[in-house]
Design a protein around this nucleic acid. Structure first.
Length: 586
RNA sequence: CGGGGUGUAGCUCAGUUUGGCAGAGCGCCUGGUUUGGGACCAGGAGGCCGUAGGUUCGAAUCCUAUCACCCCGACCA
């Protein structure tokens, strides 16, 4: 599977010979603008849920993005390789990710009964490769990358290519003998990413991120802010602090003053009221008066987490405290632990029964609250944290385990929220994979050590979608020139011989100059050509019509502007070339 | 995986309530008139009404099953 490996996009094209099936009407299935325009501009067609065929224009754009990525990766010293898309499940079992990755992993059994994974990423493969090749610190460091298809059986593919089941990713993996070396490469990748996104014409923000299933410590996410993004970025004014919502720290809320006068706990009959919503309705209370009790399993340990009823738990934060992967406990486990049906769990008396009780600051800050009674169909009111359940102890911890919300502060500064599309992420992996897969080297002292690793990903398709999300108007796409399918479109408006001749001449001149040019030689009305040119978003248009050709002139217009410049026919190609070169981000 | 919705022409969708000739707009083909912002006139092609079964004299329409696609949710304690 070769993904445009150093394939130069063809230089020129006649529209009449090209498959560019534009559509006027908005496809019913497309919700967000990038998805709509990718279909309308004839970039791609859907095959099945979350899988798309890229048509000539769409593939040109992807190819251009891949070539920018490749160029910057190569200049940063990374080496391109290509790993298989079909990987043995065994390898994933060795790192434990066959479980951690869960159902998102697409897999199949082959005719010999072996389980195979359709690569969602390649840490296992590359680490086992390195394990076989690395013996000495003298071989380190190195950085390998590939550009290839990735598969994820998303529970819900949506937003066109933003969350699809099959997509193109650039993934690279670096191997090091020490932390300094890892830090250096991490910084090189960070800088390379900045250049890549700048060259793709994207405005991006870099945020502190959580490393999720990847495991590891440091991580930054490159995010393109836009309304339709699936990620939420949290930041303080002036961008002094910016983080993914999965990561964003919040200040602890002020604790309620100690009040000895609060009456003792009271049991209330709440038949059938299992959810926060139902309890609130039943008791006419506000969610923030409730203590939400969530029960998780981490391996064979039971973890109970408490969050204010109006807040969301942040499973990533909890996962770090748990020290391993976590999942919601099933009804049986809950019943065994609390003695009640799901929906009536509470913190009173739970610390003695569970392996760990993690209390969010938002709960510790309450004067008193309502919570489950660990008895089916009953809740407790006037439950005072610290009095009715412990806030400290061997297996009790008060911590930040919730998502930031409007009104929160960090280091005293107000937190702001914005949506974005994640287009790239860099991770310091450490030794998580090298230890498990035996990727070791001998250091100068002859001692054996696991390699330190970093990994760095870029979503190629997401770059395209986010460029559209932030680059369009009511008429269609407005491409940044570096990733536009063509740099110029020539639009002859009319069939006069001198119009055709001038078009052909300029077409040839631009081609010879190395410009990527599309000639709209279709025998149709001018209006249709203009609409199509705008829809597919070619940055520069050269229009040749009756009026202008009478003065021996053509019109040059930027897709992004209304201004039209008249230029003599013989200067047109040179002038267009000049504009294009000035637009390019080097 | 749970809830909701939709499958009818290449696309967007009517028609289903109340069973009775398969529809419109856009697109496509032919001819003509047009020709700088998705033209107009005339003619035409194109559908096993998602699939399978059932009810009925008769099913796009009613019933059952199934598949696909879309939306919401998966924070439930």
């Amino acid at each position: 599977m070769e993904l445009g490996n150093f394939v130069k996009t063809g230089r020129n094209m006649r529209y009449s010979k090209a498959l560019i099936p534009t559509v006027k009407e908005v496809p019913a299935e497309a919700e967000i603008i990038s998805h709509q325009l990718m279909l309308r501009a004839g970039l791609m067609r859907k095959l099945a849920s979350g899988t798309y065929t890229y048509l000539p224009l769409g593939w040109r754009i992807l190819t251009k993005v891949m070539n920018i990525v490749r160029d910057e990766m190569n200049s940063s010293g990374a080496q391109e390789i290509l790993m298989p898309s079909v990987q043995p499940m065994e390898l994933w079992a060795q790192t434990g990710r066959s479980v951690d990755y869960g159902k998102t992993m697409a897999h199949f059994t082959d005719r010999h009964g072996r389980e195979n994974v359709l690569a969602p990423t390649a840490e296992e493969v590359v680490t086992s490769l390195a394990a076989g090749e690395i013996n000495s610190y003298k071989q380190l460091p190195f950085n390998l990358y590939q550009i290839s298809f990735k598969f994820r059986d998303e529970f819900r593919p949506r937003f066109g290519v933003l969350r699809s089941r099959e997509f193109i990713m650039k993934d690279s993996y670096s191997f090091h003998a020490d932390k300094e070396s890892l830090g250096e490469t991490y910084q090189q990748m960070y800088d390379a990413y900045c250049r890549i996104f700048a060259r793709c014409g994207l405005e991006y923000v870099i945020v502190e991120a959580e490393s999720g299933e990847m495991g590891g410590s440091g991580s930054h996410q490159f995010t393109v802010p836009c309304e339709n993004g699936e990620d939420v970025i949290v930041y303080t004014a002036g961008n002094k602090y910016a983080a993914n919502i999965e990561k964003a720290d919040v200040d602890a809320l002020p604790r309620a003053a100690e009040n000895k006068d609060i009456a003792a706990m009271a049991e209330i009959h709440t038949p059938g009221a299992k959810t926060i919503e139902e309890v609130c309705k039943f008791l006419k209370a506000k969610p923030k008066k409730l203590i939400k009790t969530l029960i998780y399993k981490s391996d064979d340990k039971t973890i109970v987490a408490l969050v204010s009823g109006d807040m969301e738990i942040n499973e990533e934060k909890l996962r770090i405290i748990a020290g391993g992967s976590i999942e919601m406990a099933n009804d049986d486990t809950i019943k065994k632990l609390t003695g009640a049906d799901t929906g009536f769990a509470g913190p009173v008396g739970i610390a003695e029964k569970c392996d760990k009780l993690v209390i969010d600051h938002s709960v510790a800050a309450m004067a008193f609250g309502i919570t489950g009674a660990n008895k089916t169909d009953y809740h407790l009111a006037k439950v005072v944290p610290g009095r009715d359940f412990p806030l400290e102890g061997e297996n009790v911890i008060v911590a930040d385990i919730r998502n930031a919300v409007e009104g929160d502060t960090y280091q005293g500064k107000k937190l702001l929220f914005r949506r974005g599309i994640e287009v790239g992420q860099v991770f310091e992996l450490g030794t998580k994979y090298s230890k498990k897969l035996g990727c070791k080297f001998l250091d100068a002292d002859g001692k054996e050590n696991p390699c330190l690793m970093g990994c760095y990903g870029i979503g190629i398709n997401r770059i395209v979608a986010s460029a559209i999300e932030n680059g369009h108007d009511e008429n269609g796409i407005i491409w940044p020139i570096n990733i536009a399918p063509f740099e110029v479109i020539i639009t002859p408006a009319g069939n006069d011989e001198n119009i055709i001749n001038a078009s052909e001449t300029i077409y040839k001149q631009l081609t010879d100059m190395g410009i990527e040019v599309l000639l709209d030689d279709r025998d149709i009305r001018g209006g249709v050509k203009f609409k199509d040119a705008d829809l597919i978003g070619i940055p520069l248009r050269i229009t040749i019509g009756k009026k202008s050709i009478a003065e021996n002139c053509v019109e040059i217009k930027l897709r992004s502007s209304k201004d039209i410049e008249k230029v003599p026919v013989e200067n047109a190609a040179t002038k267009a070339n000049e504009i294009i070169q000035s637009l390019k981000v080097k």
